[in-house]
Amino acid sequence: MPRRGAKYFFWNNQGANGAIPTGDSVKKIVVPGEKISDTPFMAETTYVEGNKTYASVAGMMDEENKFVPTKSVYSPRQGDAVVGIVVYIRGNGYKVDLNLPFEGFLSGKDTRVPFSMGEIMFGKVKDVDEVGNVDLVDVRKLAPGKIIEFPAAKVPRLIGKRNSMLNTIMQGTGTEVYVGNNGYVWLSGGDIGLALKAIDMVSRKSHVSGLTNEVADFVAKHKSE
């Protein structure tokens, strides 16, 4: 489906560190408004017009010609795993910062563990109402640790297939890591500095295939130093 103005490019297999793996496919960059399918399908980053589907954010087509958004605004959905920080305590529950325009809410009824201001939790989105208010459930308390903001669109990459990327980073650095779909990432223990560098690498090279091996090599190399 090439169109005027669109570009094809190849990921260079002689990257900055000579480390970008080969065997990667041609990827086509897509900009908002570009047609990505002749059949209609709805997703958060697409829209349908005249029975055809168009991208609403920039991204790329992967090997299976599936649209992968590169940067998108996180919209919470029921069942999402999130990392949050308690910022207000209310009589009936807790207001939780989720890196969203509005705080989420954890009802006192939905947790047996009491929280204090500033405590960090890992939980699930129980419900999102029509104006975007988030209710939380299934929370567990995390110890004080480092919280970083990670691009929400790249969270699936940071987790990897069957947690492969996350396990690589955790095992390589000894750091415990919790990743929220909301882009908050919690870290504690082990070599946090190295874990942060590895996470930064995932963020910067999220488009590169074979990245899990590259991250594993990186972590192994710097650990031995």
């Binding site: 920080i85 004080p144 919280i147």
Partner: peptide
């Protein structure tokens, strides 16, 4: 300063001091 700022201040300071 919002409640979030106050909370983040402590979280961030602790981590930086460890480093």
């Amino acid at each position: 300063e919002s409640a979030k700022d106050v909370v983040m201040h402590d979280i961030k300071k602790g981590v930086l001091l460890d480093l």
